[in-house]
């Protein structure tokens, strides 16, 4: 990788981090409505993963989607505008935090019914196979989604049809407030792929380089016809499930322990240790990220509300 690429990964991670921190503030001020699920702590997962995709590879994910949206190339402006419900948002203010998408960037959304987007990923991959396009569909979901029936139907069918899907379980240890071992018959999520004869592995999701390199290798295998694979990426969300989470289900020490393992800190040490970048250069990136996020807030705040006509637009393509 070139230095600029290393810095770009860093930039994406700090933009996500800062965007989420600012979103939390705006939520508390009442400027963001609905639910807000922050990606803080999980930045290395989607940053590493999405950096490994080709433009033709599709991405679909669950409702904790701000980071994935940024990694897929949606501007911070459009993400923030969507959070504020503005018509300049990537979903015209009609989807909100949980429903970011930009199909022109091959990002097929943010889906908020747990596990429901997995069967849709099967269809996205089928569409590529049907048209002889050599592309992989990357479908991300949380550990909580591995206990619902959709996962079974989707993984089974993807294997029956041998579709190019990379199933990515972001295991952040909790489905809302229920720890994995309290909800799943097996704590090691990747074992679930064995029931479908599907190649699988688990990696550390706090190390962006490990995620990226693993994803590059697996995506290439799938592109070359390996069939679907499952990748479990272990991570941790530093904040609550959503903004209204009293966090009674975990101890402060546990959170602190993981925070010492901060993916951005790990990557900083990596870049400085390998002399890819100096501390000053990374600080400069932090400053740039701050500017990007502040400009996004300004853009979102200055953007117009959707017009009343928007209410009835897009119910159908054809009226």
């Amino acid at each position: 990788m070139e230095k600029l690429e290393y810095l770009d990964l860093y930039q994406q991670m700090v933009v996500i981090r800062r965007l989420e921190e600012v979103a939390a503030e705006l939520y508390q001020k009442g400027k963001i409505g609905g639910f807000l699920h922050l990606y803080i702590g999980q930045e290395a997962v989607s940053t590493g993963l999405i950096s490994a995709r080709r433009p033709e590879d599709r991405v679909i994910t669950a409702y904790r989607d701000h980071g994935v949206a940024i990694n897929c190339g949606i501007s911070a402006n459009e993400v923030m505008a969507e959070l504020l419900g503005k018509v300049t948002g990537c979903s015209r203010g009609k989807g909100g935090s949980m429903h970011l998408a930009d199909v022109s960037k091959n990002f097929w959304g943010g889906h908020a019914i747990v596990g429901a987007h997995l069967p849709i990923a099967v269809g996205l991959a089928l569409g590529d196979v049907y048209k002889d396009r050599k592309a992989v569909t990357i479908c991300m979901f949380g550990d909580g989604a591995t206990n619902i029936g959709f996962l079974h139907e989707a993984l089974n069918l993807s294997k029956v049809w041998n579709l190019p899907v990379l199933w990515v379980c972001e295991n952040n240890q909790y489905g809302m407030g229920t720890a994995v071992e309290r909800a799943s018959a097996v704590s090691e999520i990747r074992q679930k792929a064995c029931g479908y004869g599907m190649k699988n592995e688990a990696i550390n999701g706090m190390d962006v380089i490990e995620v990226r390199e693993t994803a590059l290798r697996i995506l290439e295998e799938i592109r070359n016809g390996s069939g679907p694979q499952l990748l479990e990426i272990d991570t941790y969300r530093f904040r609550g499930h959503s903004m209204g989470d009293p966090e009674r289900y975990r101890k402060a020490e546990e959170v602190h322990q993981w925070q010492e393992n901060d993916p951005i800190g790990i990557y900083r040490r990596y870049l400085i240790g390998r002399e890819v970048a100096t501390e000053a250069e990374l600080n400069e990136q932090d400053g740039l990220a701050e500017q990007i996020v502040q400009k996004a807030v300004e853009f979102a705040e200055a953007s117009p509300e959707p017009s009343p006509e928007e209410l009835y637009a897009h119910v159908y393509v054809e009226e």
Partner: peptide, 14 residues
């Protein structure tokens, strides 16, 4: 669920 879900996904691709 997979039949309808896969049909939705395929439809999204055109």
């Amino acid at each position: 669920a997979a039949i309808v879900g896969a049909a939705i996904g395929a439809a999204l691709t055109g």
